[in-house]
Design a protein around this nucleic acid. Structure first.
Lengths: 236, 236
DNA sequence: TTAAATAAGTGTATTTTATACCTTTATTTA
DNA sequence: TAAATAAAGGTATAAAATACACTTATTTAA
C-alpha cells in the first residue's frame, strides 16, 4: 500500500484517545467601585441551574482561541475584546458529565457594553469578586486564578484601560487599581506615578457629575505606550 | 426511556467534536555556565527526524498534568520534578498530522540527573538556549514562551534551585541567575540580596575545584522558605 | 619557606524609587 | 458672596537598588 506522509501520520495518530475540549471565560467588568465577574445560570445538565462561567466546546475546525472569542461573543455580543489564556484544566473527573479538558480565558470588558438580550437569554449576572456564589465544577478555582493573574498582569501591562470607558478621570483609574489590588492608594503618589509613564492624554473636558469642580478626563494613548513598551517597562 | 442525570449529560455532550490532546515538555537544565533545553529527534511522522520537544498524547483516564509527568519520566526516568503548565496551543493547523491541541509544560531538572539509556533511545540532546535548532510545528514558539516565563517565575519564587545540585556555591547560584537573565550581576550585591532572604544554609564544606581558596557550599532550606512565603515575597 | 597566583569574601557611598502627608483651587449652589 | 465640595498639586523621609575595589585564604612552584 502506498501512503503519502500526511496519510501516514493520520494513521499514526489514530490509536490515541480523543477528548472533549472546552473553553470557559472569566469576564471581568468594573462598575466604578467594584470589580465584578459575569456568570450564567447553567442551562443544561449536568448541574443545570447552578452558577457557571460561560463556556463552550471547541470545534474541530476552530482554534481554541477562536472558540473562546466565540463564547465571549455569544454571551455579550462583543468582539475584539482583550482576552488572554489563563490555564488549561485537565483533571479526569473535573466535569461529572464526561472527560472534558477545559481551557480557561479571562476577558476585560467595559461593564455597560454588552447586548442585553443575549445576557438575559443566558441568565447572566454580574457578581462582585468578593461575593462569588457557589459554582459548578472547578469554576471557582478558575475564578481565583484569574483574579491572581489579573493582578500580576495589570502590574506589568496597561490592560486595565479595557475595563474603563474611553475617557476616564484619574480618580476612576485609581479606583480601578484599588479594586484590583484590594487596597487603598494615595492619590498624589498614584497620579504622579501614572502620569510619569506618559501614556495618558489629558482632554480639555471635565467629568462634573461627582464633583462641583469637575475632574479632567484622560484617554489612554496606545501609540505612546507601544513606543515605550519596546524599551521594556514595569507598569505599576 | 428512563435516564439518570449522568447518562443525560453524556448524551448531551455526545454531539461535540473530540480532539487529540497532547502535552509537550520544555525541559531546562543548567550546566554551570549555560541554560540548556532538552530536545529529541522525532522518531515518527510527520516531521520524523527533526528536532522536537518531548511530547505525547493525553489518555482518556489520565489528567493532563499526569500526562506531562509521564512524558517527562519517559525521557529522563525522573519523577517528582518541578514542572509547571506553560500554555495551551490550539491552532487548527499547528500539527500537520491532524487536529492536535497541545498543552506545553516546562520542567527544571538537574542536568546530570537522568537515565542515559532512555535519553539515547529518544535521541535526546541538550541545546543551549542561544543555539536552539529549527524545530517542528510551533515548538520554537513554546521554547520562547517558556524562557520568558522562567525569567518571570524565577524572579518571584525560588525555583531556580531545582536546576542546581543539592549543594552549590553562591557563585554557582549567581551564574544560574546570570544565565537565566542573560546579564552580568555584581557579586557583592547578589550575595547580599540572596542571603537577606534567609533561605540558604551555609555548610561547613568547600568546593575546591574551581579555586584554591575554595568557596563554601550552601543548601536551599525549603522550610525557611515556606515560612516566609506565607508572608508574601518577591524573590529577586 | 616563601612568593606568586587565584578566586573568595566583604562594606560603603550614591542614586533611585517608594511612601507619607495637607493646603490651595475651581466651581456650584444656597 | 459665603459655604460646600471634591480636584489638584509638592516636599521631606525612608527604603531599595546600584556602583565600586581591596583583603583573605589557600595552593603551587620557585
Amino acid at each position: 500500500m502506498d501512503l503519502n506522509r500526511k496519510q501516514m501520520s493520520i494513521i499514526q495518530y489514530k490509536s490515541y484517545d480523543r477528548l472533549l475540549v472546552a473553553v470557559d471565560c472569566i469576564i471581568f467588568g468594573f462598575d466604578g467601585t467594584e470589580l465584578k465577574a459575569l456568570m450564567i445560570k447553567r442551562g443544561f445538565d449536568p448541574e443545570m441551574g447552578k452558577w457557571s462561567l460561560m463556556g463552550g466546546f471547541v470545534n474541530q475546525m476552530e482554534s481554541v482561541d477562536d472558540a473562546a472569542s466565540r463564547v465571549l461573543n455569544q454571551l455579550t455580543g462583543l468582539s475584539s475584546i482583550y482576552m488572554e489564556q489563563l490555564h488549561c484544566f485537565g483533571d479526569v473527573k473535573r466535569d461529572p458529565g464526561g472527560r472534558v479538558v477545559s481551557v480557561a480565558y479571562f476577558a476585560l470588558i467595559k461593564i455597560d457594553d454588552y447586548n442585553e438580550a443575549l445576557m438575559q437569554e443566558h441568565n447572566a449576572k454580574w457578581f462582585p469578586l468578593k461575593k462569588i456564589p457557589a459554582m459548578v465544577f472547578d469554576h471557582k478555582q478558575m475564578m481565583r486564578l484569574a483574579q491572581e493573574r489579573l493582578q500580576q498582569k495589570v502590574a506589568q501591562h496597561p490592560i486595565g484601560f479595557a475595563l474603563l470607558p474611553d475617557k476616564f478621570t484619574l480618580q476612576q483609574l485609581q479606583g480601578l487599581y484599588e479594586a484590583i489590588y484590594e487596597r487603598q492608594m494615595d492619590k498624589r503618589n498614584f497620579t504622579r506615578k501614572i502620569l510619569a509613564f506618559n501614556i495618558l492624554n489629558k482632554l480639555n473636558e471635565k467629568e462634573k457629575e461627582s464633583s462641583k469642580k469637575g475632574a479632567f478626563y484622560y484617554v489612554f494613548d496606545k501609540k505612546k505606550y507601544e513606543r515605550m513598551d519596546k524599551e521594556g517597562l514595569k507598569f505599576l
